[in-house]
């Protein structure tokens, strides 16, 4: 299209084409398929839907997924902060390698992570044999799920905190210290509040990821009904029994949880951006 024909707002060509293709591809791959679950849930007999999602076994799976995800996210708040802090502020041999390896949970297929943790914490595994003696049960227990979810969520916290820690202006700390604040006071009163929005973003991201996680969890969890059966596995179980309506009911509620997390995340991110402006 010759430039003189385009309107003032769009000097560059290709808006119609690129926008059209974007909307088409987005609808074909994401929107329409996701809508089938929502439409399916509304078409279903409401009583059957409610009976499925409030059955004790399904409720137990939601409870387990949420509680392990919360617990793992809280652990990651600590470990993620620790790792981000050491990697940004301190200089020690191997720092570069550690920094790169933070991304391992993103890059490693979840199934591999799953069989690794299941083997490590089995009664004869590298970790399991010692934990066995102390009576701490990791494999086939909710704590095992938490271990897998910590692994999965860890990079989210580190990667959200790192840029903020780097951008932190030295003047903030220096002025606090020149006014007589101790190192700990500076950290508690100045640094932590400043870093908190980013920390919260990272923790929410890792939580959102953990709720839906499947591959890394199922091997270590043992998948005992009512005890270590996570919600995504519940969907899988129903599918294996060809209970499509049941599977979509469980999935619909899980989607609702994930999407509300997305809204929370958006709010948190907006707050984060505001507080760093």
């Amino acid at each position: 299209m010759p430039p003189y024909k385009s309107n003032k707002r769009h000097i560059l060509p290709g808006f119609g084409l690129s926008m059209g293709y974007t909307v088409f591809y987005l609808s074909a791959i994401v929107i329409v398929p996701l809508a089938t679950i929502v439409i399916g849930a509304f078409k279903m007999d409401p009583q059957a839907f409610i009976a499925t999602v409030t059955s004790p076994r399904v409720l137990a799976s939601y409870r387990l997924s949420l509680s392990t995800a919360v617990f793992a996210a809280l652990c990651n708040a600590f470990f993620g902060f620790l790792a981000a802090w050491t990697l940004v502020r301190y200089r020690f041999p191997g720092r570069r390698v550690l920094d790169a390896l933070v991304d391992l949970p993103f890059a490693l297929p979840t199934a591999v992570a799953g069989i690794c943790f299941a083997t490590l914490y089995s009664p004869v595994g590298w970790m399991g044999q010692y934990l066995e003696k102390t009576g701490i049960q990791i494999i086939n227990a909710p704590s095992g799920i938490v271990v897998a979810l910590i692994f999965i969520g860890f990079p989210f916290v580190v990667r959200t905190l790192q840029p903020v820690l780097v951008e932190l202006e030295p003047e903030i700390e220096e002025s606090a210290q020149s006014l007589g604040a101790t190192r700990w006071q500076t950290f508690r009163r100045i640094l932590l509040p400043h870093l908190f929005p980013a920390l919260l973003t990272g923790v929410t991201l890792s939580f959102a990821r953990a709720i839906g996680e499947y591959g890394s969890v199922i091997f270590i969890a043992g998948n005992l009904p009512f005890k270590t059966e996570i919600a995504p596995l519940m969907i899988m179980t129903k599918l294996d029994q060809f209970d499509y309506d049941g599977a979509s009911s469980v999935a619909f509620v899980l989607l609702l949880i994930s999407f509300s997390m997305l809204l929370v995340l958006n709010a948190v991110q907006r707050w984060q951006q505001k507080s760093y402006r």
Binding site: L34, A208, G212, Y214, P232, I235, L239, S258
Partner: peptide
């Protein structure tokens, strides 16, 4: 934001 299991389920 979608669980991988749900990603598979929608296409089934």
């Amino acid at each position: 934001a979608v669980s991988p299991v749900i990603a598979g389920l929608i296409f089934v």
